[in-house]
């Protein structure tokens, strides 16, 4: 049970990082932290104590196995997270070229 709470704390750490940090790169790192916490949560959901990998083989009695579905989901979310991170880092590079800073309080041309 404590593992689940640690996961939520990691989620909140990432959220704090997103909300409080001014540097674009740190914001992207915060996004990564949230993503990892959700991935870890998915793995925890599927985990069974002393469970084994869910591979079906002949002459084997499988009594306790981990749930494979969240692991498959986790793979998908990792790929999605990768593409988001790539896009956002690309945007950050272009923003630095245009504005010459990573500080979000100085990147404010859009108002109102």
């Amino acid at each position: 049970m404590s593992l689940y709470f640690l996961c939520f704390i990691l989620f909140c750490v990432g959220l704090y990082c997103l909300l409080r940090k001014r540097n674009i790169i740190k914001i992207i790192i915060g996004l990564g932290i949230i993503e990892y916490s959700v991935n870890m949560f998915l793995i925890l959901i599927g985990y069974r104590t002393n469970g084994r990998a869910p591979i079906f083989a002949r002459n084997q009695e499988i009594s306790n196995m981990v749930d494979p579905l969240p692991q498959a989901l986790c793979l998908t979310t990792i790929v999605i997270g990768l593409s988001i991170t790539l896009l956002v880092v690309g945007l950050a590079v272009r923003i630095y070229e245009k504005y010459g800073t990573f500080d979000i309080t100085k990147i404010r041309r859009l108002k109102g």
Binding site: I24, I84, V88, A92, R109
Partner: peptide, 15 residues
């Protein structure tokens, strides 16, 4: 400059 800024904001909030 403005569209990059908007897209960054949108990308973070959307994620």
């Amino acid at each position: 400059a403005s569209s990059l800024e908007a897209a960054f904001k949108y990308a973070i909030m959307g994620s």
